[in-house]
Design a protein around this nucleic acid. Structure first.
Ligand SMILES: [Zn+2]
Length: 532
DNA sequence: CGGCTTTGACCTGCGC
DNA sequence: GCGCAGGTCAAAGCCG
């Protein structure tokens, strides 16, 4: 994330300064054009990465298909127990006849529904009891039918009731909903789109404002760049003033200090150890099943009410389940608090904190990262509650930081587990703290830790009933994985499944941070034009 | 009211 | 042709 490291605070404070028409020196302009170029490069890279990702995904799929199907003992199923659509175990099996694909999905045996979420929308058109299998077979057509010819059959395995066999027939001639979202992320949010957004007063919705503000807040973490810019603007102001002071130095200094302070505060916010009354949650891999268990239970409870008790032609009663949306929030909340057991921390308004206590953030960050001085990666994700256009709901923001480090002497984070710390902070659009919690997590890879962070964000959003929240991560891989309906790597399937579950339950949206970097840079450019 | 599920009826292919 | 099993249709009903 090169672009993210060149940050500029563009929040409202700074905009007030711009009203006074401050000139900018050439070095700043140079910086900006450089960033602009970098951003372009990043976008190109993104396209390449995305293509590579898809290629890789296809290859992985193929490899998995070639692999022999190995039954795992029920005891070993620590992730996938009771998971509705956890595509954990069974590799796909492409039947000789092309276009027919069989997928084995681990589900809760007690759950009689035959719903397998795979990112596409289906319309059920039949259900039959088959000869030698007690559980019925459900027939689905793609809801884009007749334009899309894909059909699928879903039936529990005869050998293992915990496994659902899904037979796909044909190929979709359209993207899935998740692919659509991912595509929108990578392609639609290009410069021109952003520019249109910011040029049109109508389109400049509250949401976009918050989006940019939050991104600005995120980027202002890099005090290095804000320092430089602030200094540049300040010096230019002094030069240009020549007797006529457009901005009082005191006011300007105050603004700069504020920027610093906010930058410092932003660094402080995710720091778990600083949070009063913080109580971490250890979600080591052994415990990961918990969350899913709760989820599955809840899922199981819903949609039971409307089964017709009459049998079908063959004299068998079917119970079926509704789609998995719109479940009760109160229940949701209880579950979450029961299982996560994280204490919601007291809100802390950081804008009130005007005292300028110098903080060596670099040092502190290292301390907080743990004893290991060589953290592998840092993930930041942000959950934002958007205000829907017509709702007068105030905005709130939740962000989380993950710092991962090798568990053992840092040989390779692929071969050994890593431990990660996840701090989650809820904030409103002003940056005021609303809620904090944190957890430790041990995962098999950095990517898993990133997914873990995203999942935590999802869970927090769900806990608070933040429908339509936005979840951001600077890990493209994690976002991509969570946004595609393709079969994830086995080791990540549970996490991905969890994220997708919450995503659909709460209508969450996953974003890659670069998108917002782009948005911010647009605004930055506009600011500079204005300044000059 | 539209989209989806349910479910009995109907269609089709196959073996005898 | 008949019976059987798998697959599909479509009317009725549910639900947001
Ligand atoms: Zn389709």
């Amino acid at each position: 994330m090169v672009a993210a490291s060149h940050a500029l605070d563009l929040n409202l404070n700074l905009f007030h300064i711009t009203d006074d028409d401050i000139p900018v020196d050439d070095s700043t302009v140079g910086n900006l054009s450089r960033i602009s170029k970098e951003n372009k490069k990043l976008k190109e890279m993104l396209t390449i990465v995305w293509d590579n990702y898809n290629t890789l995904q296809t290859k992985v799929k193929k490899v998995i298909q070639d692999k022999e199907v190995v039954e795992s003992s029920p005891k070993k199923r620590k992730f996938d127990e009771t998971v509705q659509q956890c595509l954990l175990k069974r590799p796909n099996e492409e039947l000789p006849k092309s276009g027919i694909q069989r997928v084995y999905v681990q589900t809760d045996p007690s759950d009689k529904s035959l719903i397998v979420k795979d990112g596409y929308q289906w319309r059920k058109y039949g259900q039959k009891v088959t000869r030698d299998n007690p559980s019925p077979r459900a027939y689905y057509k793609c809801s884009f039918a007749p334009s899309c010819p894909v059909k699928k059959k879903v039936q529990r395995s005869l050998d293992d009731v915990g496994i659902v066999v899904v037979t796909y027939e044909g190929e979709h001639n359209h993207r899935s909903t998740k692919q659509e979202a991912a595509y929108a992320l990578t392609n639609e949010y290009d410069i021109s789109t952003s520019e249109r957004m910011f040029n049109s007063p109508k389109a400049r919705t509250t949401f976009n404002e918050v989006l940019v503000e939050q991104m600005a807040a995120y980027l202002s973490k890099d005090s290095n760049f804000t320092d430089k810019l602030a200094a540049a603007i300040y010096s230019k102001t002094l030069d240009a003033n020549s007797g006529l002071e457009l901005v009082s130095r005191a006011r300007f200094k105050q603004s700069i200090n504020r920027i610093h302070q906010e930058s410092v505060d932003l660094r402080r916010v995710p720091s778990i150890s600083r949070l009063k009354g913080f109580q971490g949650v250890d979600t080591t891999s052994e415990d990961q099943g918990k969350l899913m268990f709760g989820r599955a239970e809840r899922y199981d409870k819903k949609g039971r009410g409307r089964n017709s008790s009459s049998g079908n032609g063959k004299g068998r009663n079917f119970s079926s389940q509704n789609k998995s949306n719109g479940s009760g929030q109160a229940n949701n909340h209880n579950r979450m608090t029961d299982e996560v057991e994280a204490e919601d921390l007291e809100a802390e308004n950081q804008h009130d904190a005007d005292e300028n206590q110098p903080v060596n953030t670099e040092q502190e960050d290292q301390i907080e990262a743990g004893n290991d001085p060589n953290p592998v990666t840092e993930t930041q994700s942000i959950v934002r509650r958007s205000s829907r256009i017509n709702d007068d709901v105030f905005h709130s923001v939740v962000s989380s930081d993950t710092t991962s480090m090798p568990k053992t002497n840092g040989i390779s984070h692929e071969s050994s587990h890593i431990s990660a710390a996840i701090g989650i902070v809820a904030r409103n659009c002003n940056g005021s703290l609303l809620q904090c919690l944190g957890e430790k997590c041990r995962s098999e890879s950095v990517l898993a830790a990133e997914l873990c962070a995203i999942r935590s964000d999802c869970i927090l959003a769900a806990t608070n009933g933040w429908n339509h929240a936005f979840i951001e991560s600077n890990s493209l891989s994690a976002i991509s994985l969570a946004s595609t309906e393709d079969v994830p790597p086995l080791s990540l399937a549970a996490l991905v499944s969890d994220i997708q579950y919450w995503k659909s339950q709460m209508n969450l949206q996953l974003y890659w941070l670069l998108v917002h970097v782009t948005l911010l840079l647009i605004k930055l450019q506009k600011l500079l034009t204005f300044l000059m």
